[in-house]
Structures are given as structure tokens and as C-alpha cells.
Design a binder for these strands. Sequence first.
DNA 1: AGTTAGCACTCAGAGAGTGAGAGTGCTAAA
DNA 2: TTTAGCACTCTCACTCTCTGAGTGCTAACT
Lengths: 348, 348
Amino acid sequence: MDERKLKILAAVVDEYVRTGEPVGSKAISKLDNINVSAATIRNDMAALEQMGYLEQPHTSAGRVPTFKGYRLYIDELMTTPVLSDEEKSRLDSMLGDKDTPEELLVQNAAAALTELTQCAAVVTNSVPRFSVISKVEVIPTGKRLYVILLITSNGSIKNKACRLEFDLNHEQLDFFTHYIEENLNGVSVDELSEEMFDKMVAAVSAYMVSLSPLVKGLVELSEDLRQQELTVSGSEKLLSCDELDKMEVVRFIENKNGLTELLEDTFSGIQVKFGSENDTFAIGNSSLIVSKYRKDGKEAGSLGVIGPMRVDYKKIIPYVEYLTQKISYLMSGDEDDIITDTPPDDGM
Amino acid sequence: MDERKLKILAAVVDEYVRTGEPVGSKAISKLDNINVSAATIRNDMAALEQMGYLEQPHTSAGRVPTFKGYRLYIDELMTTPVLSDEEKSRLDSMLGDKDTPEELLVQNAAAALTELTQCAAVVTNSVPRFSVISKVEVIPTGKRLYVILLITSNGSIKNKACRLEFDLNHEQLDFFTHYIEENLNGVSVDELSEEMFDKMVAAVSAYMVSLSPLVKGLVELSEDLRQQELTVSGSEKLLSCDELDKMEVVRFIENKNGLTELLEDTFSGIQVKFGSENDTFAIGNSSLIVSKYRKDGKEAGSLGVIGPMRVDYKKIIPYVEYLTQKISYLMSGDEDDIITDTPPDDGM
DNA sequence: AGTTAGCACTCAGAGAGTGAGAGTGCTAAA
DNA sequence: TTTAGCACTCTCACTCTCTGAGTGCTAACT
């Protein structure tokens, strides 16, 4: 695999991304940074095809990169430009600032990506997971009807109504309230486990069996909290992209199958995954460009773009990279903030 | 516009709905209830086209109803069958009974419609509007951070976090809590007015100016309550329907633009609206079949189906009609219900 | 060796022509 | 007023041909 072949591969990808047409030897030979004849390029391209980096839609058409070709291009060949200050401030203004709620921050990022890339954007938000339960309450609201209220340090508030078989008297309610306060206050959402709830059910049932619907409600609430929220925006862009199979896109839009897992098992730094490489998330000719953002050093969610494999990586990757960095920065650290600590009055 | 032309128009619509193909004079002449020759029908069809009720995709194709044609068909020509007892009990079982929570009732109706019609279903639920505030709480959850909790008699729970400029001491918090309890408990959501809140702001500010963000939070919560909740289910069915433009459908699924208003300004009784007639809700070839249900005689929400214009109105309309009637019945009146009354322990 | 020019070959895509079939509009007769 | 008949129109599917882009191979060149 010599130097020139790599250069040619890169040129083919660039040209193909630019024009959308299969690219031939002649077109490559005309490029400034290539100084060999079309015939030579033909030989090299034949070799590249042999090696699986290029393919021909049909004889007598130019060549198109395979996903293996894109892979090599992205991982080794491509040079991404740095963003200009102008672009950065444009992104900044679309994103928000320190005062923007975290949830909105990621939504804004998704919107920005859809607009700038004309592809679909996907974001997950698992920030609540890293927060701590700062308040649990049980509030009677009707005959045998109780509302459980769960508040976390990052400001998420979840509630759920439970119906019991009997009304609780003051004493019983107090028991339960104290019990869960003792056991849940200050616990990180991430630490909540089935085990823990099993223990609670046991303890609570020992006191009074019919309290268990309340614990069940708590379990459901905590599941709510732990769950990543995944949002896909601008998915209509995928439909107008004729490189993608409409049926597959529709199927994808209907149920975002496999995406959550795929985003989960991303390691840090920017990453590009192809639909073809990956069978859980399966839009044939698609590629997914993702990166994780962090909050106080811990991974908090992902941010990415879904588009056709033939997408302008040089443009998109810097965007995604910058946005994740900026979000990580905005979410983290040095603020004199409030929501990370406990209520004022009681020292739980 | 003579009798026979109307009969022919109806036949064309029926046939087109059945087959999905443009229908020709010959096909019509073969129908049982038509006893004239194809030539006669041809003349009438030409006239109907002249009048704008039919159109030809191209010369030498059959005719297809225009939306004006559908309109006439639906409003005047169509006869809808009555549901068999069997079908009724099927719908009943899908819907629920007197014990089913109201919210679930509408959701079930939507699910039933999606399944039975293979179209998307849309429901709104403004029942909370007719309920009464049964509980208001203010819960401190962090430095200068307070959560307002609002619970209504029908079981809706809403919350909102507010940040103040100062922390409140016990006395201040008690004052506010008591004040809002006195003024809001038992008030129907529908009665909440700006006026009322203006008075509250005045009263509360007189005591302590910096409490006003809390009142503002309350206002926003009550707006939340008053707002209709709109749910679209089975929207994926629209994507697999090739009479609809996929792009438009996806755009619609992503933001249900215009639907709320459209459902709002529906008058009572069943109604059919076409995408083409209406530009706020714009899926080109679609039609929307809706009806409003009532709770204790007052309009409480809408229930409907969104599908292609070429949809089996004869089948769907009775469904929608029956479901709204049944829901209205289940929600209203004579129940010895539980959730309409106040909590057990305290006599607020 | 590696590179280049030249040439024959292949193939997709556009365009034109054809025939079948469906459905119409019109005319003339019932 | 209705009907039968017929010529006409237009789409769709199919076939055929031509063109041009791009290739692979070979032989000459550096």
C-alpha cells in the first residue's frame, strides 16, 4: 500500500463527497495535487478495488468508496480543518450559555446540527443519572390515592400516583415517609438497584404488606430517571436523501431500534459508525458521527449526526467535536451553583 | 344536478375507496344498483368532472374523486351502517369501563382506532380543565429553589421548580403555603383567571415582594393544566401509506403543527376535514375525521383519525361516533366516584 | 521498474418506436 | 333520453439503438 494509492483514495472520497457521482481516473488526474496520468491512476484504482477500498457500480462507471474505504479515509487520511472564530461564535449562539438548562442545551445542539448539516441529529441525555435524590415525598391526594414525588439534585422532578387497598393513617404514612427518606435521600440515581428496592419491599412489607404499591411506584419512578432520553431531530432530512433506502429510513424513524445501545457503547472522542458495519442500527448506506459530552468529568450523554455515508465528514466532524466540548464545558464545574446541593432547612 | 349523477358520484367514491384505482364507466355500469349503460355513465361522469367533483389523472384513465367530490359524498350521499352489537362490544372491551381512569380511556380509544382503521389516531384531553385543584404544595429543594406541586381532582399532577432571590424562612413559607391553599384549594381549573392571579401577586407582594416568582410559577402551572394534551398514536401507519407524501408526514410527526387549533375549532358532531382545505394542518392528501366527547355535558376533548383522503369513511365514521358517545357516557354523571373528592386526612 | 499513450471493449442511460389495453368523447340509431 | 359503436387518446411496458464515459490491457517509453 504505497503513498500514492492513499492519496488517490483520499482524492476519490473527496471528489465523490463533492459531486455524488462515481469518480473516474480522468477526473482524479486533473486534480492539482495529483501529477500522474490517468492510466497510472487506473492501475492504482484497480488495486484499491482489489483491496476492497473502492467499488464500481457497474463496469464503465467511475469508482465509489466502499465503507472500508471511508473507514480508512476517516481514520487515517482525512485532515479536518479547525473552525473559524466566526463559526464558533455562531455555534455558541445557537447553543446557549451557562444559564441555559442542561436539557435545552442538548436540544439546541441537535437543532444546530440538523440545520448546519442538513442531516438528522441525535442526542441522548443521561444527566439525571449522575444526580442525587434530594427529596422524596408521599402526598395523600384522594381516597386510597397517594402521589410519590421524587426530586433530584439536577432539578428533575418526577411524580407518580399510586392507589392502595386501604387508606393509611398518620402513623403509617409517617413510617413510610421516614423510611424512604432515610434510605433514598442523598443516594445517587445511578446507585439505585433492584436489590435495594427488594430490600425496601421486604422491610416495608414487614411493617405493613399493603404499602408495597408505593414501593412499586418508587421503582418505576427511578427507572424513569435512569433511562436515557434519546431524541432524534430532523429525521425528515433522511427521507429526502436518495442514497438511503426510504423503507429503511421509515422503519428507523418509527422505532429508533438499536440506537440507544449503539450510542451507549461509544468510547470517548469522536467516532464514526456505518450502518453496514452494524446490524442493530440498520439504515443501509448511512453513517453515524457521534461524540460523548461530559458533565464534571463523567460521561453524560451523546451527540451526533446521522446521514448518508457520503457525507461531508470534514465539515461535520469539527462541528460535533466543538459542540460536545462546549456542552461539556457549559455543564461542568466552576459555577457557584445551587442545584447540586441539599435543601436549606433540613440537614438530611 | 340530477339524482343519477349523485348516485354515480357515490359509486365512483365507493369503488375508488375499495380498489385504489381510478374508476371507469364500465366498472360503474357493472354495479348492481346502477342500471344504465357505460355510455350514459360516461356522459354523467364528464358532467361531474365539469362541475369539479371528479378528475382524471390523465386522458384514458378512469376518474378519481376530487376533495370537493369527497365532501359532497360525505355530507350528503354516504349512508353509514350502524354497528353490530358484536362490534360494539368489541369496542367496549378495548375502551374500558367506568373504573378506567379518564386519561386512559382516551388513550385506549386512540389505540383502538389505530388498530381498527390502520390509520393514525389523534386524541386531545382537556378533562383536567373541568377538575378542581385538590392540593397545592410548595416544597423547598435546594438553595433558593422551590418546587410547586399542583394536584387536581382528576388525578393530574403538575410540578414546577422556581428559583427565588432569597431563601424563605419557615414563617414566610408557611404564610405562602397557607395563602395559596386558602385561595386555590377547591377552585376549578377552568375558573383560574389572570385576574385571580393578579390579586394573588398583589396580596403576596404586600407581604414580601420576592415571593412573586412563586406566583408566576403557579400561573404557568395552571396554564399547563388548562392546556389540552394532544396525543397522536400510530402515526407510523401514515408512513406506509403511499398516497401521502412521506416528507409531509414526517414533518407532521415531528411537530404536530396546527392540529391543536384544528381540533379546537371543531363544532359538535362528527366532522371530516381535508388536508387540502386547511393550511395549518398540511398533509396533502389527508383527511381528518373527528368528533368531540363530553364530560357532564361539557366538551372535554376530541377524538379522531388521520388517514389518506381515500379512506373507508363508511367504516371509520361509525367507529369514531360510537367511541365518542361511549366515552362521553363513561366520563359523565352517575358514578359514585373516588377521584372527584378531596384527600382523606385534612379538611382543606 | 514504473509510467504513459493508445485502443478495443463494456455497459448504463437516454431516446425513439411499437403494440396492447383501458377509457374516453362523439355520433347516429333506438 | 339512452344506448351501441367506433375512432381516438394516452399510459405503460417493452425493445432497439446509439452515445459517451470509463475501463483493462498492451506495447512503447523513461
